[in-house]
Amino acid sequence: MKKKLAILLGIMMMSLGVQGIISLSLAEDDEEADYPTEPIVFTQPVKAVVFDHKIHIEDAGLDCDSCHDDIFEQAAGTAEENGDFTMKSLYEGKYCGACHDGDTAFASNTRCAVCHIGVMGYNRMHKVEGAESEEH
């Protein structure tokens, strides 16, 4: 009897929790649907680099004009197609290097793995089969 009660209570709490999450995310969507909420993953020239709009807007306080369309074209994939989306360009102040210069934000030639999520990170995000076994 006690067990049944506990299970019932558990189910109730879970459903409440789920509802909470749904209502929260709905509220967020209403307020800020003006930027992509999913992180962008670049695969050129190396696999893979992550860019999260959320962090740059909410934590760093940037807005759309900060980067678009001077530093980055708004159309997805443009930077990767340009052929100069490289670390060298970043060091010259292009693309991410416009801010990641050691002054405004951490320098492009430091803390590599903050942005570089690698093949393992890419596989995790895209749920590639066998990704788990590679992580040990």
């Binding site: 190396v46 696999k47 590599c112 793995a113 570089h116 999520i117 690698g118 093949v119 393992m120 990170g121």
Partner: peptide
């Protein structure tokens, strides 16, 4: 080590 970006080339 700190330069590795797991590009796996």
């Amino acid at each position: 080590q700190d330069r590795c970006i797991d590009c796996e080339r």
